[in-house]
Computed example of a mutant assay.
Amino acid sequence: MVNYDDKRDFYRMMLNSDVSVTIIDDEANSTIFATCRDLSATGMAIEMSHPLELNTNVRVNIESSSATVQPLDVQGKVVRVTEESTDTYLIGINIAEID
């Protein structure tokens, strides 16, 4: 199923949702608030004010605005970090597990 314009295996759903990102590799399990720009079956892109290191293990939680839809809680690894502007970074996360 590689018929999309960007040659991806899964379609990306464009979002603009607030998320909490917990850094699992950090002894304190630091939590950072960010914005999820897009989501697919295997990954997501989040926008935040500072970069994360490549290969950092994270847990990302997207709360639901509806009582009928469960929140999304995933674990993954940082696979891409792009500086878009001063204090704006786009972080690519490969999803390893969905809870």
Rank of each mutant, 00 (worst) to 15 (best):
V2I: 14
N3T: 13
Y4M: 12
D6E: 15
K7M: 15
R8A: 11
R12E: 09
M13K: 06
M13C: 11
S17M: 12
D18P: 08
V19N: 04
V19I: 15
V21F: 02
T22G: 03
T22L: 09
I24H: 03
D25W: 08
D26A: 01
E27G: 03
S30E: 08
S30T: 08
I32C: 03
I32Y: 02
C36Y: 00
C36E: 02
C36W: 02
R37A: 05
D38I: 02
S40G: 05
A41Y: 09
G43F: 10
A45Y: 04
E47V: 13
E47P: 05
M48W: 01
H50D: 03
P51H: 03
L54Y: 06
N55G: 09
N57T: 08
V60Y: 00
N61P: 00
I62M: 15
I62K: 10
S65N: 14
S65T: 12
S65V: 09
S66R: 04
A67F: 09
Q70N: 09
P71Y: 01
L72Q: 01
D73L: 10
G76Q: 04
G76W: 04
K77M: 11
V78R: 02
V78I: 10
R80S: 05
V81D: 07
E84L: 15
T88A: 10
Y89N: 06
G92H: 00
I95E: 14
I95P: 07
A96D: 13
A96F: 08
A96P: 00
D99E: 10
